[in-house]
Design a binder for these strands. Structure first.
Lengths: 123, 123
DNA sequence: GGCTAATACCTCGCTTTCCGATGTATCTGA
DNA sequence: TCAGATACATCGGAAAGCGAGGTATTAGCC
């Protein structure tokens, strides 16, 4: 299967990588930040989030280290690795290609011209 | 589960509805048209396409009728129904919300750097 | 006539993905 | 003391997608 198709369902890692590219975060904070930025539209359930984080660490995209807060609570803070940054770029390009492909089919022109976009052939 | 999450994986119907909103088509032609418009980036496999068409017909979004070509080959031509048109609108709105949500997370506008910019912590 | 490739439909069963449910443990504020 | 938030984790079932297989016709080639 091509990567692009995989993207459709597998964009959880891309979103996580995007956040970690800004600053290191722990799992719970990642979930909350996603909800905050998308006004609860996107949401990472725990059953998805933690297994995904583990897999991403296995792949070498992120690196986790246990820390203890002042309160004494333990948490695992993840940082993005150089490979993770590379992967992020790759996935973001794939996302753009996918988005453009969808919009080529549904025939919707990118009204926000902030990214000098595809010139739709207006019929 | 909210509709928006479902969209990620379930956008096959939206793409089909979009094409049928333009003109009636049969299954094989739908698959070819998707490939053409997206330069082979998106592709409907037969194992996905036909079951999806059947389900959409069941739901009343599309309506199929058997036709015979000059050559004598039979094919089932689908048209979009009024309910299908409504559903298309609903799904396209959901797609836009989803797209905006993703881009709110991955921060595709490099102009606004939230906290001192996207500075990858090189370990 | 025999062969391949394209057109055109269909279903079965496997794999992958996702997530609800559940469990553990700590801290905070009422 | 007790509810609710924080914070981690796993398991098993459900759903989506698709490869593989099947049927049948037409077109082009030698």
């Amino acid at each position: 299967m091509s990567n692009t198709e995989q993207l459709v369902k597998g964009n959880t890692p891309m979103l996580i990588l995007s956040l970690l590219a800004e600053k290191p975060m722990h799992g719970y904070a990642i979930a909350k930040e996603i909800e905050r930025r998308t006004a609860d539209l996107l949401r990472f359930r725990e059953g998805t989030l933690y297994p995904t984080l583990h897999e991403m660490e296995q792949r070498g995209w992120i690196q986790g280290s246990w820390e203890t807060t002042d309160g004494g609570r333990e948490r695992k803070v993840y940082s993005i690795t150089p490979q993770g940054l590379q992967e992020l770029q790759r996935q973001q390009h794939a996302w753009q290609r996918f988005r453009n492909a969808v919009e080529a089919v549904i025939g919707r022109k990118p009204s926000q011209s902030s990214e000098g976009g595809i010139e739709p052939c207006t019929t």
